[in-house]
Amino acid sequence: MWTLEIEPDGPASAAAAPGQFNMLTAFGVGEAAISLSGDPAEPGRLVHTIRAVGPVSHALAQLRPGAALGLRGPFGAGWPMAEAAGRDVVIMAGGLGLAPLRPAIYRLLAERARYGQVQVLYGARSPADILFRRELESWRRRLDVEIEVTVDHAAVSDWRGHVGVVTTLLGRAAFDPANTVALVCGPEIMMRFCAAALGDAGVKAEAIHLSMERNMKCAIGLCGHCQFGPVFICRDGPVFRYDQVAGLLRHKEL
């Protein structure tokens, strides 16, 4: 996992909203959609967190300080921060899914008084895979936010926290389901389980928001590459209300 900080060379792009993404180009290799993962209060610092899975992400992850790359954006509809005002906020992140949620967490903490309870529930594969660990630890020291981390499995010697799937943390979290906005990001299976668990806890589908991923090309709603049923992820998302995508998520081939 690499975190890449980009300084604009030329006109700065528009300030990004939490949940938006940029298209990053590794010259000579190609382009990929990568979420902004930095603090939205510092729009001059474009921070991206990348997992090397294929050619583009590998090339981006290997960039040295001072190297050039291409950037277009920001694109897409982000997290519904305005809708969350005055309500409890439950954030459920899995694995790399914490990266696109990090700007939302910064925003919530910066405007803490605007929201009700704030719960951040994060599931990772193992203690070594926990993203932004130092930051999570410093947020945990705050008295006005609940941060809980769980891992799928851990060597006994290196972990004293929760072990189990992220949905088990929900049962212990304090929030008023009728007045809650949930923000969920992670692998699709994990998001389906989280949405179901949130629903069981009494959170309405309209109040659950998921960030979807599909391969992208144009990122501006023209090419149809990112089509997901009737919607384009790049233009209509990547953040969707669960009631808008629940039916689509059940189709394996989409």
């Binding site: 899995g94 694995g95 594969r125 799928d152 499995h153 189990g164 088990t168 992670g186 692998p187 389980f193």
Partner: peptide, 19 residues
């Protein structure tokens, strides 16, 4: 059932490289 579902997720290794 919860243990079974948790085991499914752990076996799928949803946060792993291939997920």
């Amino acid at each position: 059932i919860q243990r079974l579902q948790a085991a499914q997720m752990q076996i799928l290794d949803v946060y792993g490289e291939q997920a």
